[in-house]
Design a protein around this nucleic acid. Sequence first.
DNA 1: TCTGGGGTCCTAGGACCC
DNA 2: TCTGGGGTCCTAGGACCC
Length: 432
Amino acid sequence: MSLAAYALVDCNNFYCSCERVFRPDLIGKPIVVLSNNDGCIISRSNEAKKLGVQMAAPYFKQKRFLERNKVAVFSSNYPLYGDLSERVMNTLRAFCSDMEIYSIDEAFLRLDGFSTYNLTAYGQHIRNTVYKWTGIPVSIGIAPTKTLAKIASHICKKNPNSSGVYNMNDQWGNSSQINAMLEKVPVNEIWGIGRKSSAKLFNYGITTARQLRDRDNAWLQKMLTVTGLYTALELRGIPSIALDDAPPARRSIRSSRSFGQPVTEKRDAQEAAVAYMVRAAEKLRREGLLATTLSVFIKTSEHRPGDQHAEYCTHTLEKPTDYTPLLVHHASEMLCKIFRNGHQYQKVGVLLSGLESKHNQQGSLLELTSPATQQQIEAEARLMCVTDAINKKFGRGTVQYAGEGLGQPWKMKQKNLSPRYTTKWGELREIF
DNA sequence: TCTGGGGTCCTAGGACCC
DNA sequence: TCTGGGGTCCTAGGACCC
């Protein structure tokens, strides 16, 4: 049987690369992109990495250092990144339709049908085309399983001589070469092995991918559950994590943000809960879903040990809905239940779950809808449809719920936001 | 002063049923 | 008084991912 072949295509420093597409003057210069609320550093160009800027470092601690080293700083601009991501994925699809979009900046391709090709050369061709068509540089790892393809792409990024593609299948027959390669991969860098599992494994003297691969199955399952066992099987070259080419239906929708400054007033927290519920409900309708279970949570900052309160409240509806006024009503009530005076809150959020498709709803045989009720349901649907259309056309917040508040003192910070070059004409001219 | 947001999967344990 | 055994479903919590 011929060897399976998975490719992982991974965009290099994706958010930084997106910013550079429209600011070519920054090519070769250090840049970083911040998380929401300008909280942490979540993307670094190679030049910034070389300066020693750490991933997930709090911005306020690095600010002076970044200024001194003339590092360009951007707030995250998700409309821009989402749009460029779509262009990259569309380009990849032209090369291989058997594809799983794994995240905003990564995709797996299944290349089994390409066994007559030189896969390394094919990878090069894909890489060059993506760069030419979108301006985004990518690294490509090719291997017999998804987990190994992840490792291959890491190796490729770390090695400047790799020319952007690393094909593990080429050396698969040479077990001493493969062993030597897996020996150099720290166990905590394996896909699926996080901080807790690494610490556990470390206690048993397991520090490399090779050592993990060579433990017996029963032990692996006991220590790391079946997911850990699958990871080890994949390291042996046995495909155990399937390609998800048609992602399963979504199970939950979440909307939450940190506040721009600590919130102590119930009214402010309530406005935020309402505003996030409005956004979650928009997403619900956009995807043709209805929700049955609503949750609201609130928490103080983990970095203030003297002031801790976190609480979570859930409400289950009798009938699934996508009607914002109803969802907002419950969000507001739940927030009141869990809010306590005297705390400095850092974040609230809402979660919608128990999702089902609007179009194949389970109707109850016993339920008879009167014409008046039917009319009301239709009126509500029209109202949602119209507000969504207005907000889409004229921008979010054109039609707003009173409960979202006007001043919104809790709103997040975004001081270094770049223009939405690809999705707003009005902001495109800012380049020139 | 200031530390992201949005997802998924697995397991254990309780509730419930026959 | 003594109160089985096995199955399913749901939920909370933990761990992981980008």
